[in-house]
Design a protein around this nucleic acid. Structure first.
Length: 206
DNA sequence: GAACCGATTGCCT
DNA sequence: GGCAATCGGTTCG
């Protein structure tokens, strides 16, 4: 009668419905549409058998050769070539000597594009008690990657497991604000940043 | 090789 | 608001 009698099977139970996981088609679309649609979705990370869930509240779109601010803006290089790769894979890069940035590759294969995940709110898996304190609001891409322990070696992984997932639980923001991207000098006038209006985890309001 | 830059953050004035 | 920290990627020679 106790649950201990039927132990773990080969298949691992995921803390979300398989139907709610976004698939490759979701990411194989216009980068700006994907960036906007990702607001409110849940980003899952599995780290040493524990799951952390964070609701995405802020993103930015980075496109191809038509976007000078994008890593793809000067053509394919060893670092940026992943942006031409299959959609729905992570693109993690290192910047300013100390921060990693989490991006998701967009557009059909051979068309470059990626969405920078700039902010999120941890909604489950938050560490507490005797474990190390973890903040709830991941306000900014550097802090987000650091808190979720996302590193360069995570680059190229799909967002439908076994390390990352993105799910839709039906929760939607009342209003999504579109504004200028942050921290760039080229193509700074484009309103390709999207955030959940008034959400406390958003890095900056403009 | 060497020099320069950057999709950030936190601390300082 | 200004600016240093810090280092892989990119460009230049």
């Amino acid at each position: 009668m106790s649950s201990s009698s039927k132990r773990s099977t080969v298949k691992e139970k995921l803390p979300f419905s398989k139907n709610s996981v976004l698939d490759e088609k979701f990411f194989a679309r216009d980068t700006r549409v994907v960036a906007r649609d990702l607001i409110g979705k849940i980003f899952w990370v599995k780290q040493s058998r524990r799951f952390t869930a964070a609701r995405i509240t802020e993103t930015e779109a980075y496109r191809g050769e038509d976007d000078p601010a994008s890593h793809a803006g000067r053509g394919k290089t060893p670092r940026s070539s992943i942006m031409w790769g299959k959609p729905g894979r992570t693109y993690v890069y290192f910047i300013y000597g100390m921060y990693e940035m989490l991006n998701i590759v967009t557009e059909p294969e051979h068309t470059p594009g990626a969405v920078l995940v700039r902010a999120a709110e941890v909604i489950s898996g938050l560490k507490s008690r005797n474990q190390r304190y973890q903040v709830r609001d991941l306000s900014g891409p550097g802090k987000l990657a650091k808190s979720l322990k996302i590193q360069m070696k995570d680059s190229g992984k799909p967002v439908w497991g076994p390390r990352f997932w993105i799910t839709d639980d039906g929760v939607k923001p009342e209003l999504i604000v579109e504004t200028k991207r942050i921290g760039i000098t080229k193509a700074a006038h484009l309103n390709w940043r999207y955030y959940w209006k008034d959400h406390p985890s958003v890095s900056r309001f403009e």
